[in-house]
């Protein structure tokens, strides 16, 4: 008869476990990045072979021109970048008061035209200010701060908030017409 050997349970040496875990950890450290992409979102106009015939009333177009030096021409007048946001806001929220500004936020269009030689940085700065104006208007309407507006995520919002968000988007639709810098017209 074999006698069962009486031995206390042999310990499995777990010392190398840490090494294995370290290896995996380093792999993930090297091969991955934190998803930190944030940007200015835009919807481009649809592809079209012919310019649309729909005419927009002159008063509803807020024209911004950026030249190769980064200088701005807003509504035919030179303007400092810092004043863009305020003038876009007054223009959009005019509601027919000033005959030179928009009829209503729904009709307002911002035409942003950049020279082919303009740097991307100055273009983004102007676009940023225009978006800031709209975001402030929308945030005001929602009683949110601009930061709250920017952080808004459709996926984890309640139906009610989503409805209000959609409403405010319809109230202040951001319509930026990006004219083609090649041609000298604002047909797009």
């Amino acid at each position: 008869m074999y006698q069962k050997k009486q031995r206390d349970g042999a310990e499995i040496n777990a010392a190398s476990m840490a090494d294995i875990a370290f290896l995996l950890l380093f792999f993930f450290l090297v091969a991955t990045t934190f998803p930190s992409d944030r940007g200015l979102t835009m919807i481009l106009p649809p592809k079209q072979d012919e310019p649309p015939e729909k005419l927009i009333n002159e008063r509803n177009i807020f024209k911004i021109l950026v030249n190769a030096n980064g200088d701005l021409l807003v509504e035919e007048e030179p303007m400092d970048l810092r004043d863009v946001r305020k003038s876009v806001k007054t223009f959009v929220n005019n509601n027919g008061a000033d005959p030179k500004s928009s009829d209503s936020p729904m009709d307002a269009v911002v035409s942003l035209k950049a020279d082919r030689g303009t740097t991307y940085e100055s273009y983004v700065q102007v676009l940023d200010q225009v978006k800031a104006a709209y975001h402030e208007l929308r945030a005001d309407d929602l009683d949110w701060t601009v930061d709250e507006y920017l952080e808004f995520n459709k996926d984890n919002a309640s139906e009610e908030v989503k409805g209000r968000y959609k409403q405010v988007l319809d109230k202040y639709p951001l319509r930026i017409s990006e004219a083609d810098p090649n041609k000298g017209n604002d047909k797009e």
Binding site: D37, G39, L40, V124, D128, H135, L150
Partner: peptide, 10 residues
């Protein structure tokens, strides 16, 4: 990348 204030997540 350029600097901007009104960034939103995609």
């Amino acid at each position: 990348l350029p600097k901007a204030t009104q960034l939103q997540e995609l």
